[in-house]
Nucleic acid binder design. Sequence first.
DNA 1: CTGAAAGCGCTTACAG
DNA 2: CTGAAAGCGCTTACAG
Lengths: 332, 332
Amino acid sequence: MASVSRALNGTGVVTEAIRTRVLEAAARLQYVPNSGAQSLMTRRTHTIGIVLPTLYGEFFSELIRGIDIAARSRGLHLLISSTHCDATEAGNALQSLIGRVDGLLVMSPYVDGRFLQERVRSSLPIVLISTVDIDHTHTSFYVDNYSSAYAMVAHLAGCGHRTIAHIAGPDVNVDAQERVRGYRAALNRELPGAAEFVLRGDFTEESGYRAGRELLATGMRPDAVFAANDMMAIGCLCALTEAGLRVPQDIALAGFDDIPTARFVVPALTTVRVRISDMGGRALDRLASAIESPAQFQPVSETVPAELIIRASCGTPARPAGNPRSAPVQRV
Amino acid sequence: MASVSRALNGTGVVTEAIRTRVLEAAARLQYVPNSGAQSLMTRRTHTIGIVLPTLYGEFFSELIRGIDIAARSRGLHLLISSTHCDATEAGNALQSLIGRVDGLLVMSPYVDGRFLQERVRSSLPIVLISTVDIDHTHTSFYVDNYSSAYAMVAHLAGCGHRTIAHIAGPDVNVDAQERVRGYRAALNRELPGAAEFVLRGDFTEESGYRAGRELLATGMRPDAVFAANDMMAIGCLCALTEAGLRVPQDIALAGFDDIPTARFVVPALTTVRVRISDMGGRALDRLASAIESPAQFQPVSETVPAELIIRASCGTPARPAGNPRSAPVQRV
DNA sequence: CTGAAAGCGCTTACAG
DNA sequence: CTGAAAGCGCTTACAG
């Protein structure tokens, strides 16, 4: 009967008597509405889908944490699909989410705006994080990779480091690409004549460790190593220390992301603070408002600011890292 | 028409001609079945709900990662509800999941078996992880906390450490409780007369760091510190090193969990390996089989074995840590 | 203020 | 092999 629905949902008018009787019976019978039936009528699942390439490491737990907090405060549920290694898997993940959600939060190196347009009806709101979208057809969030990487290398140069190596993230990853680009530009402009030295990594500690050993094996010893994320920096730190080198005295080190652990490793890691959970929360807020008012939803691309966090791992600056391009610097 | 459904789902018989026409049309129209309507008929959502207290740190990302991999291979979706700080919030999280899932994976210090029985219809399969269930009404997974903590303290004693402090996790947390218990028992039996020294923490690096400073402030300097998880051990490491102490020469350190970062901090962290993602995967497998054949689902409690992982942070053992109670020891 | 009725998008016996 | 029909559990105009 309709009054039951009205009482349960607090929508429409019901006599107090009926209301209490319904609520009491519902409680007694452990009644829980079937959300499938509900969303069939309301056209809302109150669920948003999240597509992530992996869940490995603190970056993703921070991201999900931020998304989760924002979602909870809006009464939205999170359907998570992570761990896909190529476009096919990403496509499948997408497919299986589409019929179950009101909107999609996508972060994937294997997906781009066009890919999404081809397989998702345009009425489904989507927000992208660190995901390529040449045609600017979607709302996106990007970390300020290029400038921050530039600023970090400039800061390292300002600390007196002349040869600076870079441990890059995966080739396919747009964050990784932009960070290399920033590294290269800074090297060219701030240290003219200095040789580039790029080692490959894949954003895991393991790969940072391997890169560190590789570096050592070449016999070259750069003044500083700038890793494209904190996990690789931590792996590299381990390799360097294992080889008897002291950080920062013998070799300086910097990372990217400012994952929670960064300030607790020894020496504390100089890095670029991304405010990962904030970014996740903002992306969700954006998606939620797109779901509520689809008409006003214009695709805009937002750059998430980042700041240098100067800790012990990079040594003391010889001169202040004053550079018009540099992100705000903070000593912690 | 029924044939469409049959063609799309590959169930029942359809002419090849119809099959291709349907599939082609579906692709062209970007058709995606409405999962709500589907589950209304099939009584299956192919979704399982996960209740977690928080998402902070690598423990939870590893756990979810393991669950996710297992879920994917079974075609199950994951609805995640984390971040609840008390029983009320946990109850709400539960309520909002119940109507949407085929089963529940619950890990929460604020929930127990009875609490669940009161608000979840008994036909909904539930698997517990590190969650109290005195009446043994649910299937549960528990880390072998007590024995492993005992073994770790015995190992530290075997390394020659006489005074051993413990940084405990939150009081409400059953893992934390059992680890303190193991610590106490080992101290009593392996180092008779040695004083207990328990510092409070909450499983975050920050709290480990604070505990480390607190320890230093007392003026006592134990030979070793055993933290109830790796994150606190890493925080403590930072506090100790900051104060000019060397680990393990001046003070030994051990953690619990073996999160991925544990082997990359310097010195590498001696710890108890829990195989977090495995545990998550096994819990999901158990839940999945309960969903498939509810009749055979008997509540059983499983203890997940753990092993000591001896790395540099605890110093070299003076004598082999041979103890009948001890978990298998591995040097890495 | 309330209940009967239609309908959301599917699946599944059922009759043909 | 296929289509008409019923029904899953809800919500929402609608008439009373």
